[in-house]
Design a binder for these strands. Structure first.
Lengths: 224, 224
DNA sequence: AGTCTCTGTAACCGTTCTGTTACATAGGCT
DNA sequence: AGCCTATGTAACAGAACGGTTACAGAGACT
């Protein structure tokens, strides 16, 4: 789950410090020392989060964000500010910002807040059940039942089966599975998928009579 | 008979004055200067009374209450208003409010009205009980009984169990629990959930024979 | 102020999971 | 059949995860 984060901060060393720490956490970052060029970026690229200094020379950070909101950019924002007066905090929130931190701030806290915001904005928790032949996958309780019998799955196995069932009749290649089940950023060997699939096969069909998961040689796997 | 009263009033000194006086009377209070966060609170917590300024900047207090009624929140309300025009009073009542006071008001009178309303609503407060297996959670008295035996829970433990029971058969991840039990804005480590869950487990099932709370590795916890 | 309870944090440890590797097997092609 | 490549299988080790405990700070109560 790599996110693209844009940081606007005029003090270069702080900017670098933030970028360094966020990249260490696996985020993609782009830093600016002024709002110049940032507007265009926000409009054209899919930016997941904006970290914005309130006290930029020239433009007020919150003013800038307000303008962005005006043209339909709804990227969530974390404001940074040297001040911590109550009035400032309220103003920041009123203008549609999502979070607020005062300098000097704890880098750990910043990362936590970032993760919280990303999670919140990306939440489209679809709950319900997915069914395929005699397999039922309960997305709420994360339970698998086959012919009425419950089978324990690990998180990885569950997610993998979920992806397969959601795309039944479509052959999914290893890259697709790696990206969707494992998460885009990490790098794995391709045998990883292989082994995981076979562990899953073993669990849902120990005596290999059902052939739920079909191997498509040279391509990937499918449920059909 | 301690009641939980939420106050929404944008003038900070008045807010503080009210809180001070109500707490002196033994009420639990929570004050807000805007309706932000209040909706969530009303939905999720058992709020006994809402004191609501009619003249908030932005949202109309009575409009806000109407929305709350729309989603099933039936917390009684006392409106505060600087105006005392007849039309306003009527409108206030029409929208389902329970009482109405005009500023400036007498604090003694406010307390009396509060007590009157609480008395009235307490009676028909068939506060629900939540039941799961042999666990009964009395939301009114905030008591837990298991197989008929009362067990003391702290506030945190109670809220946590309440959330779990209300979502039984659904695996709740740590972020969800942090947001709903601890409250959205604060930042905690997720091991916090871990420890809290285990303290709760210890209390409700000391000899680990019942397995009420199930750990779903890599995801969260569930009652199933 | 002092005590007690509650609760967040950190550290440690055992368990489970999972990525990797090496090897075996199967499928497809000439 | 023989070869080559892709996939299945088994074993292992490191990583991730959660349980547990200890501790300290916050808050309530005396």
């Amino acid at each position: 789950m790599s996110a693209f984060i844009v940081i606007v901060e005029d003090e270069e060393d702080i900017l670098e410090l933030i970028e360094y720490n966020l990249e260490k956490e696996g985020f993609d970052t782009m830093g600016f020392t002024s709002t110049k060029n940032v507007a265009q970026l926000l409009e054209e690229e899919s930016v997941d989060l904006l970290i914005m200094d309130r006290n930029l020379p020239g433009v007020e950070g919150s003013e800038f964000v307000a303008q962005m909101r005006g043209i339909g950019v709804d990227t969530p924002v974390i404001y940074l500010s040297a001040k911590n007066k109550e009035s400032d905090i309220e103003e920041g929130f009123d203008r549609g910002g999502d979070d607020y931190m005062t300098k000097p701030f704890n880098m750990k806290e910043l990362v936590l807040r970032i993760k919280a915001i990303l999670k919140r904005t990306k939440k489209d928790k679809t709950e319900g059940k997915v069914i395929y032949r005699d397999i039922t996958l309960d997305l709420g309780s994360r339970e698998l039942s086959i012919e009425g019998n419950n089978i324990e799955l690990t998180k990885l196995e569950f997610d993998l089966l979920h992806t397969l069932i959601s795309n039944q009749n479509i052959v999914l290649d290893r890259d697709y599975l790696l990206e969707h089940v494992w998460g885009g950023d990490a790098i794995y060997q391709d045998r990883t998928v292989n082994v995981a699939i076979n562990r899953l096969k073993e669990k849902i069909d120990p005596d290999k009579s059902k052939e739920y998961i079909k191997t498509v040689r040279g391509v990937g796997y499918t449920l059909c």
